[in-house]
Computed example of a mutant assay.
Amino acid sequence: MKYFVYILLALSLLINAGCSNQESTEEHKLFISAASSLSNVLSKLGDEFESEHPNTTLTLNYGASGKLAQQIQQGAPVDLFLSADQKWMDNLSEQKMILENTRANFTENKLVLVSANNTNTPIDNLKGLMNTGLDQVALGNPESVPAGSYAKEVLTASGLWQDIQNKLVYAKDVRQVLTYVESGNTDIGFVYASDLKRSNMVTEVKKINKSLYGPIEYPTAVMASSDTKEKAKTFINFLQSDEAQSILAEYGFGS
């Protein structure tokens, strides 16, 4: 009888060990939709996260926050959303598409005006945008691109929004604004301070007074439809860690 009990115990230990091993080697996949302004830094953050969680693979999808939110509303299989403003996260929240207790702000940014290197584009104040020597001003489409929405706030607060319409060139996201300015297709563009770390082909012309636009906060949240909610929460915790915050600062993010 004792021999039979020992056999049962041995079998039980083997089964438990097998289950434990299966859990430790289980593969996780996280699909993350993120604002295009995060593309450079998130690739770095993703590499760090995957090195610490070797059984997790991240798939990163970038775009304008508004477009990404619309994709989620249309059923795109997203586990985590990283937005460049609160508006689009609020929109998903109102439709109960996020887990509210996972929502968190993980970084900030600032707005600047840039021009291509080796161009003479002096702007003492925003009224200088009306200078006849400036033909085109690039900004993200305010309807879907947070950077463009902030730029509209700035131009409206400065009393320029109506008068500058014939000079505005809308881009699908902030990365395209950079491309327009780099190529010389536009004279100047509204981008984030972090974009100065992304491109060595543009120069800061002017910092925008933060009193002219609302706080540029980046919220994240786990989607209610996610099949990997716990692992997605782990990534949010990682974004708030000292390690991740240091990387974000290195790439020009933060207050």
Rank of each mutant, 00 (worst) to 15 (best):
M1D: 14
M1Y: 05
L8M: 12
L8R: 06
L11G: 10
G18D: 05
N21Y: 11
N21E: 10
Q22P: 02
E23F: 13
T25Q: 15
F31P: 00
I32C: 11
L38N: 12
L38M: 13
S39R: 15
N40Y: 01
N40Q: 11
V41N: 00
V41I: 02
S43E: 14
K44A: 12
E50A: 02
S51A: 13
H53W: 05
P54D: 05
N55C: 04
N55Y: 11
T56W: 00
T56S: 09
T59L: 11
Y62D: 05
Y62P: 04
G66K: 01
Q70D: 04
I72M: 03
Q74C: 05
Q74Y: 07
A76C: 03
V78L: 04
L80D: 01
F81A: 09
L82V: 07
S83G: 02
S83H: 06
S83V: 04
A84F: 02
D85M: 06
K87T: 14
N91W: 10
K96P: 01
M97T: 06
L99I: 15
E100R: 15
N101T: 15
N101E: 10
F106D: 03
N109I: 07
V112P: 01
V112C: 01
L113I: 06
A116F: 07
N118R: 13
T119D: 05
I123D: 02
I123L: 11
D124M: 14
K127G: 12
G128L: 09
G128K: 07
G128D: 15
G133A: 12
L134V: 10
D135C: 10
Q136D: 10
Q136G: 08
V137T: 05
S144Y: 10
S144C: 01
S144M: 08
V145R: 00
V145L: 11
P146Y: 06
P146C: 06
S149P: 08
S149C: 06
E153S: 07
G159Q: 08
G159A: 05
W161V: 01
Q162R: 13
Q165K: 12
N166C: 03
K167N: 08
Y170M: 13
Y170S: 11
D173W: 12
R175Y: 09
T179W: 06
E182K: 14
I188V: 15
I188M: 08
I188A: 08
F190N: 00
Y192K: 11
A193P: 09
D195H: 14
R198V: 14
N200L: 09
N200W: 02
N200T: 13
V202T: 10
V202Q: 03
I208S: 03
S211V: 14
T220H: 02
T220E: 04
K229P: 04
K229T: 14
E230F: 08
T234A: 15
D242M: 03
I247Q: 06
I247F: 09
L248N: 09
A249G: 14
G252V: 08
S255T: 14
